[in-house]
Design a binder for these strands. Structure first.
Lengths: 225, 225
DNA sequence: ATTTTATTTTAGGTATGCCTAAATTATATA
DNA sequence: TATATAATTTAGGCATACCTAAAATAAAAT
């Protein structure tokens, strides 16, 4: 069951979209994959016809993954995230540089290479932005973190993850010190301005960030004190 | 001037063949690239038509590289050899495993990644089998080594390179201890048996190898004593 | 409930890079 | 030199994965 690079990309995006919305629509896929909707329709039809099928597809109602498809998607996601961490740790890639390189490498590395990378990284469970890495059996740890924006003033938390869909945002978050494992305390919400003010540990002044940013950063509560 | 993976493969093989024989013929290319001769003809025609042309091609007389083509080929070769060494040094790949993985990776790594790899490896000039790595300006060091089989009895030498075209041979050479930087002394030629007997430094017994093997191993003379 | 709008699909085309079979050209042999 | 053989090229096809334009369907608005 060798998958073309394209098919692998489709699986990854269907995985993400169907996790988030229950299914992946043609136009959503076209957007994320940067191809035209007509192209997506054709590809979905072909992938659903394949044996064994990796996706289910019904005219006008988008696609979801089969069990096989989910397994395939998780394998690619594992490769991608291992690569991101590897590039960051071993080749000094910055936070916002890893994605693009991993995007190309994930389609060509062997299972052997993926295993070796996992070993030299010590079987890690998060990539540089905090996305969880499926374990070698492709199980994903359950996540407890929630958007920073949902913190109430006074609550202490630790950053677990920053959404990586926007490299611009990653650079911005990095410049503010919003990185995984950074501790912080929520200071205040300002609903009118749609902002939240937070105090980062080891930082003198509190900072104020917009709602959009706050919703891209995910945290776990830390017991107060 | 983005090159397809195929075009990159063609350039690499044309580089090797035209260095060895002056030009690359259609059937040689078909052999090395594992495609049919008709496919080669088509590809050569297309590559010669491209602007700027990377190869020169004349009906029935094969192909050679233009200056641009040679530059492109050397860049891919640099990537390939850096990757081989990287896999060997950093991910514990054995001698005979590196080639296949590098073969796929070389087409997708960015210039940035190539540079980072060169840095962590300390700007190396040989890959794990001893093939020279073009420097960052794509200059190749001049090689002085010659086939082990040309050693005269009594001469001392150091192994510089083992041809990597045959993974089977690589494993065999490795099992005998024939690796770059190993020192040895030629003991005797046995013309009838087409063998040569050599004494490896740090090895108790001399070993006898066939002419084929001896011609895949390249050495530099070491001053006697 | 009908119409408008947005989404999705179908139909027909393109470029890559491969293939086979047949024709051509070059090379080797008689 | 003529002929047999080997190498190469041409011609015509296929799969992949993309495209545009037009048709069909679904969803939203009146």
């Amino acid at each position: 069951m060798k998958l073309s690079r394209s098919a692998q990309d489709y699986l990854k995006v269907i995985y993400r979209l169907s996790n988030r919305y229950g299914r992946a629509t043609t136009s959503q896929l076209a957007n994320w994959l940067e191809v035209k909707p007509a192209t997506v329709t054709g590809m979905l039809q072909k992938m659903a016809r394949a044996a064994p099928p990796l996706i289910t597809y019904q005219k006008h109602r988008g696609a979801t993954l089969t069990t096989n498809g989910e397994k395939a998607a998780l394998q690619i996601i594992r490769r991608h995230r291992l690569l991101e961490l590897f590039l960051h740790e071993k080749l000094d890639y910055t936070w916002d540089e890893v994605h693009e390189e991993a995007e190309r490498l994930e389609h060509v590395i062997s299972e052997k290479m993926s295993q070796r990378i996992a070993i030299v990284l010590g079987d890690p469970c998060r990539d540089p932005h905090g996305d969880p890495i499926p374990d070698p059996d492709l199980q994903l740890a359950l996540l407890t973190e929630f958007p920073l924006g949902d913190l109430q003033p006074g609550q202490q938390a630790i950053i677990r993850r920053v959404r990586d869909e926007d490299a611009e945002l990653l650079r911005y978050a990095d410049s503010l010190g919003l990185r995984p494992l950074t501790r912080l305390t929520a200071v205040a919400h300002t609903p009118i301005a749609q902002t939240i003010t937070i105090q980062l540990a080891d930082t003198a002044e509190p900072i104020t960030i917009g709602q959009y940013t706050a919703n891209q950063v995910f945290v776990d509560l830390e017991p107060n004190q």
